[in-house]
Design a protein around this nucleic acid. Structure first.
Lengths: 130, 130
DNA sequence: TCTTGACCTTCCAGTGACTGGAACCAACAT
DNA sequence: ATGTTGGTTCCAGTCACTGGAAGGTCAAGA
């Protein structure tokens, strides 16, 4: 399979697949013409990567997960720890965004949004006592 | 005021303040010795930027907000639109993170996290029908 | 046979918003 | 005189791609 085929099948852009090869996440063979020659196993790996990335795992997490995936002697505890850490990071981010969202929503609600210059959003950012 | 003073007062790292000057967000004067000389107004701007960044506005949003802040003839509608767009982006991100969180939480919950190799997290990523 | 177009290759640069570090100059206390 | 702390510039790295240039390969049609 050429890169275009795996790109279509895995949903990962060809450019990204080349990048994944660059950083050693996949190691496709090469045909005589210099084209990358992907095996089924490469496609499978890329699909794995696509799903892991969709869950927000970092590339380094993906590398670790892929290694565990291929390690018969893994302990599920290793996998779980990676996932739990990631879950914690996600929760942190959500909390942060929610706090931003709340403040921002209040400000937006308080702003008339008309042709006059008075604006509680700017007043807050400028920290003038309203 | 030297950069260290404004850094302390605004809570923004000196490195970041230099970066903000680089991209034209602040324009401090210069003393004879080559040191940046910050006025009260520069400090005020930096504090504004710090709060806007804390709300997650992009640097370009900050630039626009700062310009509006200093524009007597602004219309609050201009400010509100920027804030509303940003709010929408935040909501999108939260939704995305929540969806990740949900999937991930299920997988983590299903994983024994012991010494055995069987792992529903990897099974899901590998897309084997469990 | 020639050409067109789709596909592939490598390499370089840019994204956003900083951050780290090297190498050096200035100010001040001891 | 020396040491510490602060300032300066400039270059490179982060993360995970993404865009684009310049060129090689292949199959189909005129």
């Amino acid at each position: 399979m050429n890169i275009g085929d795996v790109a279509r099948l895995s949903g990962i852009p060809a450019k990204t697949i080349r990048y994944y090869e660059d950083i050693g996440l996949v190691r496709p063979l090469r045909s005589g013409n210099g084209y990358r020659a992907f095996r089924e196993s490469d496609l499978h790996k890329l699909a794995f990567l696509g799903r892991a990335r969709a869950l927000g795992f970092t590339i380094e997490d993906c590398r670790a997960l892929l290694a565990l995936y291929e390690d018969e002697a893994r302990e599920s505890a290793q996998v779980k720890r990676i996932a739990e850490d990631h879950l914690a990071r996600i929760d942190e981010k959500i909390a942060q965004l929610r706090s931003m969202r709340e403040t921002l929503a209040h400000l937006v609600h308080a702003c008339a949004g008309d042709a006059r210059p008075d604006c509680p959003i700017l007043a807050d950012l400028g920290h003038e006592e309203r």
